[in-house]
Design a protein around this nucleic acid. Structure first.
Length: 415
RNA sequence: GUGGGUGUAGCUCAGUUGGUUAGAGCGCUGGUUUGUGGAGCCGGAGGUCGCGGGUUCGAAACCCGUCACUCACCCCA
């Protein structure tokens, strides 16, 4: 049997209702906060991701779906959204437009990872990007949107982690200190961290191996080594969150994985997801525009892993469709008249359906029941002859005779 | 890329130390006498037991291989 590709998933009708709800909440929340939707391509030139995400990250080194186009150019299925948004903003000079500095997107991303709970090779992200200002209040706005988005979905027990990883210059100073601190502990670190010590010492801080966690307990904190402007910025962000009563914890081990992050970083976790506990994360990326040969432009954004969010969504939160009216037409004169009625109902925005297989009233009502119809409209030969129909409430079993010419009116008065 | 777990009906699973035509519940479908659904009752369809090889008189069960799924590591949302 033909199967779907490893790590890819079909969203079946029942699940799709949940996704519609999720996407609707994302769109309205982002819109309320002044963000406009942008839709960017699913693939770009490979170079874009190599330059923005960072050449030594796992994503670029071994997780991208990269392929050659017919003309030999290297293309890559987008592994994340920020790079493409920045590219589009530069290409269309959106920074000059006041309405295009706050953007959001929604869509599939692709990474060739080993699948596991809450992680797929095609997954979906909702993300926002606020461009062109480094006012700490925009940081607060972005973090607040992320927090309120999850609240609007009814998620519980969330934790907001926040940290500042400073500017590249700040980090250089700190990394020297950190290496000094780690040097005597080097033999105790796990193999991975011994390697990280050389390539990316910051990542030792968020290693999950217990020995490494213990070893780094007394490590110097990055936020103690920030430049004055970075410190002031970070404090202003915290003050802003306090003002809005958004609860957070400062997490000194929170280090973002992609090269373009700077200063404010944050992530929201849920305790109900096992290993993949991060459902949304983001940070400031003040250097990315320049890395992509644009003008120096401060910016901040986040991305939400929607598959992980669906794992936390309770059933009763999904939006329900309009009540269904089942048209039960039978008999040589009833059936064709009923089919015309079905068309008329749909034209007047009433959700209506029938079952062409059923030819007896019993079979039709059974179908109505299986489709969870709220009402059935019974139209046999007798009704057709008198231009009426029976409107049956499937829950109460109450029936009333309604003239066909008045039936849409009658239904609208019920709704 | 590295480790662990699991593969029996559409779904959830049972199958006793290897032993006749492989089972249940749910779902699907037909009937319950023909213009009133859900329940009950009676019937039906649906499985090369993931695949390949081996051991055996005999394998869904034991062994080897392989594939798939899954969880964890790594990394990330």
């Amino acid at each position: 049997m033909l199967r779907s590709v490893k790590g890819l998933k079909d969203i079946l009708p029942q699940q799709a209702m949940q996704w519609q709800h999720l996407e609707a909440v994302a769109r309205t929340m982002a819109t309320h906060y002044g963000f406009s939707e942008i839709r960017i391509p699913i693939f770009e030139f490979t170079e874009l991701y190599a330059r923005s995400i960072g050449g030594t990250t796992d994503i670029v080194e071994k997780e991208m779906y990269t392929f050659l186009d017919r003309d030999g150019s290297s293309l890559t299925l987008r592994p994340e959204g920020t790079a493409g948004v920045v590219r589009a903003v530069l290409e269309h000079k959106l920074l000059d437009s006041p309405t295009s500095r706050k953007l959001f997107y929604l869509g599939p991303m692709f990474r060739h990872e080993r699948p596991q709970a809450g992680r797929y090779r095609q997954f979906h992200q909702f993300g926002v990007e606020a461009l062109g200002t480094d006012d700490p209040l925009i940081d607060v706005e972005v973090i607040t949107l992320l927090w309120e988005f999850f609240l609007a979905l009814g998620l519980k027990d969330l934790t907001l982690h926040i940290n500042s990883i400073g500017t590249p210059v700040d980090r250089e100073n700190y990394i020297l200190k950190l290496k000094e601190f780690l040097a005597p502990l080097f033999p105790n670190l796990c193999g991975n961290c011994q390697r990280r010590y050389l390539t990316n010492p910051l990542r030792v801080l968020d290693c999950k191996v217990p020995i490494c966690q213990e070893s780094t307990v007394g490590a110097p904190h990055l936020i103690d080594d920030l430049s004055e402007t970075s410190t002031i910025h970070f404090q202003a962000v915290l003050d802003g969150l306090n003002d809005l009563k958004i609860p957070y914890i400062i997490n000194h081990r929170l280090v973002r994985g992609l090269d373009y992050y700077s200063r404010t970083t944050f992530e929201i976790t849920s305790p109900h997801l096992g290993a993949q506990s991060t459902i949304g994360a983001g940070g400031r990326y003040d250097g990315l525009f320049q890395a992509l040969q644009g003008p120096a432009t401060p910016a901040i954004g986040f991305a939400v892993g929607l598959e992980r969010v669906t794992l936390l969504l309770s059933e009763d939160r999904t939006s329900k469709p309009a009540p269904l009216f089942f048209v039960a037409g039978f008999g040589p004169r009833g059936k064709p008249r009923a089919f015309r009625l079905l068309h008329e109902l749909r034209q007047s925005k009433i959700r209506a359906d029938t079952d062409h297989k059923g030819n007896t009233l019993k079979a039709l009502l059974r179908s109505a029941d299986k489709l969870s119809a709220e009402y059935s409209i019974i139209l046999g030969d007798d009704e057709a002859d008198s231009s009426t129909a029976l409107l049956r409430n499937m829950h109460t079993k109450a029936q009333e005779i309604v003239k066909l010419e008045e039936i849409t009116q009658r239904i609208h008065s019920i709704l």
